[in-house]
Simulated assay, not measured.
Amino acid sequence: MTNLSINFPDNIVKVTSEVAKKLGVSRTEFIRQAVVHELNNFQVQLEQNNIIKSFAAMKKSKKYQEDTKLLMEGLNSALPEEEEEWWSKKRS
């Protein structure tokens, strides 16, 4: 682990000390957890932004639009006639 020296305003130090005490952890541990929490939130935000960019790119892509149209037409078409209850073991 690397040791860091960080300067905080006095009011932040007071609040972090109070919250850490209520949580039953040291102030250092509380700050460590807060930083990890924020890093995780940042990663989630990056992933969400990348998903949004991907959707926007798909919306602009003529090839994607054509492929989607073909797929939807296939899903909406009627199924071919099949032998009634072909899956049943009890066939006449």
Rank of each mutant, 00 (worst) to 15 (best):
W86I: 15
A78S: 05
Y64R: 02
E73K: 10
K59L: 06
Q33V: 05
V25Q: 00
F8L: 10
I31L: 07
W86L: 13
K90N: 14
N7Q: 15
L71M: 03
K14F: 10
L4P: 07
E29W: 02
E83V: 10
L46T: 14
P80L: 02
K89C: 07
M1E: 03
L39G: 05
I12E: 11
L46K: 06
N3I: 15
V35G: 01
K22V: 08
I31Y: 00
N76K: 09
G74H: 00
V25Y: 00
P9F: 10
G24W: 00
I51Q: 07
N41C: 09
G24N: 03
I51C: 03
R32L: 03
K69V: 06
H37G: 08
E38K: 05
K14E: 11
E66W: 04
S26G: 04
N40A: 14
N49L: 10
D67T: 03
L46R: 03
S88W: 12
S92L: 10
E29H: 03
E84L: 15
S61W: 00
Q43K: 14
L46S: 08
E81Y: 03
N50V: 04
T16A: 08
F55W: 09
H37K: 05
S54H: 07
F55Q: 11
E73D: 02
E81P: 01
S54M: 03
R32E: 03
V25N: 03
P80F: 01
S17W: 11
E18W: 06
K59H: 04
K90W: 15
N41Q: 11
K22A: 12
K90M: 11
Q33Y: 08
W86G: 13
L70T: 08
T2G: 13
E47W: 07
E83N: 10
L71K: 06
Q45F: 06
A78K: 04
F8W: 10
A78C: 01
S92P: 07
L46M: 14
Q65K: 06
D10Y: 12
V44L: 11
E47Q: 12
R91Y: 11
N76G: 03
